[in-house]
C-alpha cells in the first residue's frame, strides 16, 4: 500500500469503512489515523496518515507466534488463523507498530488487508472509500505505471525501517513540495 499523506486529511473514513466491512467490535479498530504536527508557531508542519498492520516481509509477529496462528499468506500478507490462536499476545508484544488487539472473542486480530475482498478482485474497504485518494493498493512486485508516476521524485518513507521488519506500507511524505 502507498499512502499519500500530502492529500490525507485524517477524516477517518478508512477506519469506519473497515469497522463495517470487517465487523470490528465497538471500541476496537484495525486501522487508525494519526495527525502529527510539529515545528514552531507560526512555522508549523502537519502530516495526516492512515495506519494499519504493515504486512512486514520479516514480521516479528509471525516469528514469535508459538502456534503458527500468525502466518504469511501466499500473497505475502500477514494473516491470523483464529482457530490456532491461543491469545498468548506474544505477537502484540513483538509488533513495533502496535497494530494488533485482542478480539473480545478471544483471539488476536488485526488488518487482513481485506483478504476476502482482494480475492474477489476488489480493493480493500479503506482504499475504496478514501475521499482524498490517499490510499493506494499497490503490488510492489509488479508496480503499475500509475504508481511509478505517483512515487516519482517524491520523498517516500517506511515506518521504523531500522526495526528490520521490512514493512510493506510506504508513505509519501507531507513534506513534499507542491508539484514535486
Amino acid at each position: 500500500m502507498v499512502i499519500d499523506t500530502r492529500v490525507c486529511v485524517g477524516c477517518s473514513a478508512c477506519v469506519y469503512a473497515c469497522k463495517q466491512e470487517n465487523n470490528v467490535p465497538e471500541g476496537y479498530c484495525r486501522d487508525w489515523v494519526v495527525q502529527e504536527s510539529g515545528g514552531e508557531y507560526p512555522k508549523l508542519t502537519m502530516e495526516n496518515r492512515s495506519e494499519r498492520c504493515q504486512h512486514c516481509e520479516n514480521a516479528p509477529c509471525v516469528t514469535y507466534c508459538p502456534t503458527r496462528a500468525s502466518h504469511y499468506a501466499e500473497d505475502g500478507t500477514v494473516q491470523i488463523n483464529r482457530s490456532l490462536c491461543t491469545g498468548c499476545k506474544a505477537c502484540m508484544a513483538a509488533c513495533p507498530y502496535d497494530a494488533r488487539y485482542v478480539h473480545p472473542e478471544g483471539y488476536v486480530d488485526k488488518c487482513s488487508l481485506c483478504k476476502h475482498r482482494i480475492e474477489q478482485g476488489l480493493e480493500t474497504a479503506c482504499v475504496s472509500i478514501c475521499p482524498t485518494g490517499s490510499l493506494n493498493l499497490v503490488d510492489f512486485n509488479n508496480m503499475d505505471e500509475k504508481t511509478k508516476e505517483l512515487l516519482k521524485g517524491k520523498i517516500v518513507y517506511r515506518q521504523k525501517e531500522h526495526a528490520g521488519t521490512e514493512p510493506s506500507l510506504q508513505w509519501i511524505s507531507a513534506s513534499n513540495k507542491p508539484g514535486a
Binding site: 500530502r6 495526516n48 475521499p131 482524498t132 507542491p178 508539484g179
Partner: peptide, 27 residues
C-alpha cells in the same frame, strides 16, 4: 475534498488565512 486532493496531486498551492492551524492549513 476529492477535488482539493486532486488539485494537490496536480501541484496546486494552497494558502490558508486562519487563526488556527487547521487540517487544510497543514496542506
Amino acid at each position: 475534498v476529492q477535488e482539493i486532493s486532486e488539485g494537490i496531486r496536480n501541484g496546486a498551492k494552497i494558502v490558508v488565512f486562519d487563526p488556527r492551524f487547521s487540517t487544510l492549513a497543514g496542506k
